[in-house]
Design a protein around this nucleic acid. Sequence first.
DNA 1: TATTTTTGATTGACTGATCAATCAACAAAA
DNA 2: TTTTGTTGATTGATCAGTCAATCAAAAATA
Lengths: 205, 205
Amino acid sequence: MPKVGMEPVRRKALVDAAMRVIGDHGSLTVTMSEIAKQAGVSPALAHHYFGSKEQLLIETVRSHLQRLRDSVVMELSAAKTPREKLSAIIRVSFQADQFAPETIAAWLAFYAEAQRSEETRRFLVIYARRLRSNLLANLKALCPHEDAERIAEGAAAMIDGLYIRQSLRSAPISIEASIALTEDYINALLAPLSKKGRPSKGQIK
Amino acid sequence: MPKVGMEPVRRKALVDAAMRVIGDHGSLTVTMSEIAKQAGVSPALAHHYFGSKEQLLIETVRSHLQRLRDSVVMELSAAKTPREKLSAIIRVSFQADQFAPETIAAWLAFYAEAQRSEETRRFLVIYARRLRSNLLANLKALCPHEDAERIAEGAAAMIDGLYIRQSLRSAPISIEASIALTEDYINALLAPLSKKGRPSKGQIK
DNA sequence: TATTTTTGATTGACTGATCAATCAACAAAA
DNA sequence: TTTTGTTGATTGATCAGTCAATCAAAAATA
């Protein structure tokens, strides 16, 4: 085996391994040994590259959020109208790999960790803001601004709520049903509204 | 100091202490020592009464859920109509002590724990089912059954989602706003419906 | 080209701290 | 004197983090 330029390879392997271990362990109380073993290296090497367990965990959150962000960007650029973009955001939130039990377990663990780790919290806040602002921007094209704020808040909450409920794995809701519930919410709140505030009968002001 | 009948007193003190410690620690990785100190007894006594840390934690979840349940029952009995009962359920979910940062942190920790502890998971499943079925029962009085199912699912998700978003403590949503968002959801989805499925103009079948 | 030197990658063994859990002993009430 | 409550001291396990030593490739030198 070669000997140079291993660093990026090992870092990625360790971050991926951490994600997997956290996922099926369902918590951040995982040991460096478990992660290292999963990545096929010694625990000492994990410390060598990341300095501390906390740092490795933070990189793991970062990487996960980055991947999610990339998905959103890609899907958003494919969608044309604001309404299509809203659907794209929803679709990505519930896409299969995001909605897998291990991924959801990891999410939950990250949220719990954010109660103690300021840095983890910051990442999740960024994610939450991005979700909200993506929704908001497109809603503003479809209804008055104040309504858009409310609806964005509600839709974001619903998405996160569907996640957390999924984590209990009792009567799990399918991906399609989750998408439908969120779409319904947006449609129902948008229905009586329109860009410039059409009251009820299609009269444009 | 007196000497008999201490057991229930100590158990309650320890469970309450655990809740407090978990709350401001924001995680279940708390030590028996911390809990015992908070309760003003020695760690050995905590083990004496609960046998293990896990058992104490489980009792803590149970006690918390029981208190919530009591609140719901009380508020529900005060409400008369189905629509009022729906509002009562929502109101309890967001009542001040439930929505306090430490309580939310504790909830989150319990959800994370449920990934590993079957018993904790069972309690949370029971809570989730109860919330859903309380909503469902009252919704059924207001719209067709299939619609009631969807709306109950969505409202439950929204409630949980508002909780989890609150845990990030960035741009926190007020109690009133949280209630308003959930009420809006129900109103919006209920609007085009009625008990026997009036299509759109008030014609009763 | 052959050799030595340097450098990055990697690990086994170890340390120190933390903690759940146990237990023997003691105090006070019954 | 029996029972209940209570604790300090201790044990054993687990882990994050450190370190000195090894190995093999690459670079420098002859």
